[in-house]
């Protein structure tokens, strides 16, 4: 077993194996993880964080691969966090995003890490945010987080990114109607991928119209870019728009506000998970079980039972 000090030293020297080991210990919440994150935190804050989300099969990984190559043309270092769902039944996951990232496979300026959701919603955002911090501290100039966008957890992750790209395809059509409430609201830039397919123009127009209806928010109206990621078409335009959004946020002071909001959310999330951990210790869990028996026996109501547990905590 390597010591934390040794690992951190190798990390500081730019050892990618050490970076990878630190990501693992953070992701697994090994005992040293709070200490490691605290020691790395002063090095964070330099990386620009981009989120890429959209329905399954929209071509997110291919698009991310293209964006990474575009960023590498400027000689900047990139970290990619590719998130895929865990099975709620077995806890296993098949992480296949690397299949679409062959072109960046052995570039020493790129570090790709696949993460499974591990059944948590808000918790995933916390873990992915921590991993982004680790990559930031390692010196990556840009960190891209890729998530499947259908539920709630990607919203939290999007909040932790400074620019969120929502990827849709011509076939998304009706799906957009259902998703726009959540997904479209978080978009800073929209990519219509597989734009060589039928219906691309129509969906681009519809999306544009929908955005115009919504109007500007904080002085930014999300641009709609057509891309064919598999051929590299439109990647440069997409990157230019991300860059434009970055400059806009920096100059308007929104980036600072965004970061502040992020810190607040992070502190709250940590407090909440610690409270959860502290409340459900051995004593309260055994109390819970005996109280449940009493509820089942008709002696108490669930509300009375919880009051009992809460009084235990207050009385500590």
């Amino acid at each position: 077993m390597v010591s934390t000090d040794d690992l951190l030293k190798r990390f500081t020297d730019g050892d990618r194996t050490a970076l990878s080991k630190i990501i693992t210990l953070v992701e697994n919440h090994e005992s040293s993880f709070p200490d490691v994150l605290d020691r790395l935190y002063p090095r964070t804050g330099k990386a620009y964080r981009i989120g890429v989300t959209g329905p399954p099969g929209a071509g997110k990984s291919t698009l991310v691969s293209g964006l990474v190559q575009r960023v590498r043309a400027d000689d900047k270092l990139v970290g990619v966090i590719a998130v895929d769902p865990s099975s709620p039944f077995t806890g296993g996951a098949l992480l296949g995003d690397r299949i679409r990232m062959q072109d960046i496979g052995i570039d020493p300026g790129v570090f790709v890490r696949s993460m499974a959701t591990r059944g948590s919603l808000g918790g995933l955002a916390e873990a992915a945010g921590d991993v982004a911090d680790v990559m930031d501290a390692f010196g990556q100039d840009i960190v891209i987080t890729e998530t499947v966008g259908v539920g709630q957890c990607e919203l939290d992750i999007a909040e932790a990114c400074y620019t969120t790209v929502v990827v849709i395809v011509p076939e998304s059509g009706d799906a957009i109607q259902a998703m726009k409430a959540g997904l479209m609201e978080i978009a800073d830039v929209i990519a219509i991928n597989k734009a060589d397919r039928e219906g691309a123009d129509r969906i681009a127009r519809q999306t544009q119209a929908m955005l115009e209806l919504r109007g500007e928010r904080n002085g930014w109206s999300p641009p709609v870019i057509c891309t064919i990621a598999s051929q590299g078409d439109g990647i440069s335009d997409l990157f230019d728009q991300i860059e434009k959004h970055r400059v806009f946020q920096t100059e308007s002071g929104l980036l600072k506000k965004h970061r502040r909001g992020n810190v607040e959310a992070t502190v709250k999330a940590i407090v909440e998970s610690e409270i959860h951990r502290k409340v459900w210790g051995e004593r309260s869990l055994s109390k819970l079980h005996s109280l449940v028996d009493e509820v089942m026996g008709g002696k108490r109501t669930p509300r009375q039972a919880s009051a009992e547990i809460l009084s235990m905590i207050d009385g500590r």
Partner: peptide, 23 residues
Amino acid sequence: MEVVYTGLHQTPEMVVEAAIQED
């Protein structure tokens, strides 16, 4: 288990790089 699949046609360098990045 959490399984990362690389896809086809990998060089030994690509396999090793992926194994390290994914720990």
